[in-house]
Amino acid sequence: MDQSITQPYAMGLLMVMLLAFLMSLTLLRSLMCRQSSHNLIALIFATIIVGLSYLAVTQGLPITYGIWLSILAPTIMTWYFKQDNKKWQPQVRH
Rank of each mutant, 00 (worst) to 15 (best):
I48R: 00
C33P: 01
T26Q: 10
Q35D: 15
I44R: 01
N39G: 15
G51D: 02
Y54R: 05
V50G: 03
L31I: 07
L27E: 06
V50M: 12
F45T: 12
M32V: 11
Y54M: 08
Q35M: 10
Q35R: 14
S36F: 01
T47F: 06
C33T: 04
L28D: 12
Q35F: 00
L27Y: 08
C33G: 01
A46N: 07
S53V: 03
R34D: 10
I44Q: 06
G51A: 03
L31C: 08
L27K: 13
Y54K: 07
G51W: 01
L43S: 05
G51I: 01
L55G: 12
S53R: 07
T47L: 05
H38M: 12
S37D: 09
L31G: 11
S30N: 11
T47D: 08
I48C: 05
S30T: 03
I48Q: 01
N39Y: 01
L52M: 14
M32P: 08
T26W: 06
G51E: 00
T26G: 10
L31P: 01
Y54F: 09
S53Y: 14
A46Y: 03
I49G: 00
R29D: 07
I44H: 03
C33F: 07
G51N: 00
G51R: 00
A42L: 05
S36V: 01
S36N: 08
I41W: 03
I41Y: 01
M32T: 12
F45R: 06
Y54A: 13
L55H: 12
L40S: 06
I49N: 03
T26P: 11
L52Q: 08
C33S: 05
I44M: 10
L27D: 05
T26K: 06
C33N: 05
I41L: 12
T47W: 01
S36D: 15
L43V: 12
S53Q: 07
S30Y: 04
L31S: 04
Q35G: 11
A42P: 14
S30P: 02
L28C: 11
A42E: 00
L27N: 11
I41F: 03
A46D: 07
S53A: 15
S37R: 09
A46C: 01
S36Q: 07
Q35I: 02
L31Y: 06
F45S: 13
T47C: 11
R29H: 08
F45P: 15
R29P: 09
L28T: 10
S36H: 04
T26Y: 04
L52P: 03
G51S: 00
R29W: 00
S37H: 09
I41C: 03
A46S: 12
A42D: 08
S30H: 13
S53T: 15
R34G: 15
A46E: 07
V50T: 13
G51Q: 00
A42K: 03
S37L: 11
I41E: 02
I49R: 00
M32H: 06
I44W: 03
Y54Q: 15
L28Y: 03
N39H: 14
L43M: 15
A42Y: 06
